[in-house]
Amino acid sequence: MNETSGGTGGAGHDVAARIQTRLDEIARPDYDDPARTNLTGLDWLVFFGFLLVCAVGAVLWGY
């Protein structure tokens, strides 16, 4: 396979060094990523409410 890197270290790159470089980027206090936003209370309510309604509804209907 034409795998020039992909974690092989074939190009002489050190994985730990790359992680440190990456950490310098993503561990900055001003690093912006939508994935860092935690779920809101409403998210949790809808999520657990959906699963609970499905489970209770299924038991009442099928058991």
């Binding site: 890197s5 992909g6 974690g7 190009a11 790159h13 994985v15 790359r18 992680i19 470089t21 990456r22 950490l23 980027e25 993503i26 990523d33």
Partner: peptide
């Protein structure tokens, strides 16, 4: 390399 490391290895993704 870092992007490929992130997708194939343990480097955190951006």
């Amino acid at each position: 390399p870092s992007k490929k490391e992130a997708l194939f290895g343990t480097i955190p993704v951006t």
